[in-house]
Amino acid sequence: MTALSRPDWMGLLARAPADRLAQLLPDEPQARFLRPPEIGTVMVRGRIGATGGAFNLGEMTVTRCSVQLADGVVGHAHVQGRSRDHARRAALIDALMQTDRASDVHTRILAPLAAEEAARRATRAAKAAATKVEFFTLVRGEDT
């Protein structure tokens, strides 16, 4: 698997199931909160006619958190939903990925998360693909 950029791994951590992160990070590194987990919202926007000017669609719940490891490295997280644990763990992993433990964290945490997400998406796409139809226009019967 190719190297992930920071936006890539932050997105992956945000989309991951909260309880799965707990399983993959059983022992948390020593850190202090720069911003303890905080629950709020983000306004989701759409575009008029899918491509035009923006409009406000509605909000979603988001939890954000910032941590600092003992060696001073800072990690951030903005994750969908209201799980403080999810946001804290995502911020810790974001910090760890900027240390010399990155390769280990990638192997133990990010790679399994990415594989599981890819499998979930592929399953859903395959089930949708199985419902693909071709409509045929029938010849009208009255002239035959």
Binding site: E38, I39, G40, T41, V42, M43, V44, R45, G46, R47, A50, T51, A54, N56, L57, E59, T61, V62, R64, H78, R121, R124, A125, K127, A128, T131
Partner: peptide, 23 residues
């Protein structure tokens, strides 16, 4: 409930052309 929450900001407009469609 929504009125009790702070708003952190506004997201970029969603790109529905890249939607993972189930329908």
């Amino acid at each position: 409930y929504r009125t009790t929450l702070p708003r952190f900001g506004a997201a970029r407009p969603v790109a529905t052309g890249t939607m993972a469609c189930t329908r």
